[in-house]
Design a protein around this nucleic acid. Structure first.
Lengths: 162, 162
DNA sequence: AAAAATACAGTAAATATTATGGCAATAGAA
DNA sequence: TTCTATTGCCATAATATTTACTGTATTTTT
C-alpha cells in the first residue's frame, strides 16, 4: 500500500489530467493535449515521455468493434481443478497464450480456481474451443460457462480519482 | 452470423493488417503504418478514416498501469436478483455508471444474473464500495466476490484470424 | 545566499498529416 | 468488345506536428 501511495504522489494534477486525456483519446496530438492540460507542447511531450518510461502508460491501442469483426459472442468460463500443483498456473499461462480468443485468464479466490474471458464468433465454435481448452489444460475437474447476453459497461479505463 | 460474415468480407488483407497494427500500437504514424502494410501514406490514411467511419475502430486509448495508479486490486462480483423485472437492467446501467471503478457489467446466462469487474485500491475500500453497490442496486438477493490473485492474460485485443 | 536542479516557454528543423491531382486497374454499361 | 465510371493507388505540396535545443524563472539543495 505504501508503495502505490508513494508512487501516485509523484504525479501532480497535470500528470493525472494527461493520463485521463490519453485514456479518452490515445491519438491526441501533443499540441492539443498541451492545450487541454495547460502546458505548451514541449513540456507536455516531456511529461508523456516520462509517464511512458516510468511505466504509468503501458501502451496505446485501438479499440475495435468485436461484433463487426467476427467475435460477437462473449463468454466467461469458471474452471475448477482437481489438484492444485504449484506449477499449474504456469502451465495455464502457456496454454492460454495459444488461444488469441482468450482475452483474460485470472487465478481467483472463491469457489473455483480460474476465470476466463473469451471472445469468439458463435456458440458452435465456442463449444469446439472449450473442448480443446479443457483437453489441453491440466487437471480440470469442472467448468461452468456463462454466456453474456447484454453488456451494460465495458472499459479498461483506470479510475484516476483526479 | 450472415451479417458479420458479410461485413468482414468487406475487409481485405490490408484492412485487417491495419487493424492489427493499430491494436498493437495505437499511436503509430500513418507513414510507418503504411510501410508495415505495404501502402503509401495517403491510401493508408484513407483506409483508417474509412475503418473509423464504418465503426470497425471505435476509439483509441492509452493502457495505464493500474498497480501504479492506486487500483491494484481486481475483483469479479457475481450478483443474483430476487425478481427479474424487465427494467432492472436499465436501472443497473444507470447505477453502474456512477462508479468509475466498475470496469465491466454483464448480464449473463447461468446460475447468476450479473457479472461485475471492479478495479479498486484495496479490500477495505472494496468492502465499502460493495456495500454501496448492493444498497443502490435493486433487488439484489445474493452476491459472491472473487478476488483476483494473479492474472495470466489480460487484453482487449480482438482476434482478427487474419 | 549561492549553486544546482527542475520545469517551463519559445524557436526552428525534421517529420507527419492531409488535401489534391493524376494515373492505372477494375467493374459496369452500352 | 469498347466506352465510361469507379476505385484505389501514388506523388506532391501545404499545413501542422513532433522533437531537439536554448534560455529563463522557480524551486531545491548545499
Amino acid at each position: 500500500m505504501a508503495i502505490e501511495t508513494d508512487e501516485i504522489k509523484n504525479l501532480d494534477r497535470i500528470d493525472r489530467r494527461i493520463l485521463q486525456e490519453m485514456q479518452n483519446n490515445g491519438r491526441i496530438s501533443y499540441v492539443d493535449l498541451g492545450k487541454l492540460v495547460g502546458l505548451s507542447t514541449s513540456p507536455c511531450l516531456e511529461r508523456v515521455r516520462r509517464l511512458e518510461k516510468q511505466g504509468y502508460i503501458k501502451s496505446y491501442t485501438a479499440n475495435l468493434n468485436a461484433d463487426l469483426l467476427g467475435s460477437g459472442l462473449l463468454v466467461f468460463v469458471e474452471i475448477n481443478l482437481t489438484y492444485r500443483k504449484a506449477d499449474v498456473f504456469s502451465e495455464f499461462k502457456q496454454a492460454v497464450a495459444k488461444w488469441p480468443q482468450i482475452q483474460e485468464c485470472h487465478l481467483v479466490s472463491g469457489d473455483f480456481d480460474y476465470l476466463l474471458k473469451i471472445r469468439i464468433e458463435n456458440i458452435a465454435i465456442y463449444r469446439q474451443l472449450l473442448g480443446d481448452i479443457l483437453h489441453t489444460l491440466p487437471d480440470v475437474r469442472e467448468s461452468k460457462t456463462m454466456v453474456v447476453m447484454e453488456t451494460a459497461a465495458e472499459t479498461s479505463k483506470i479510475d484516476l480519482q483526479a
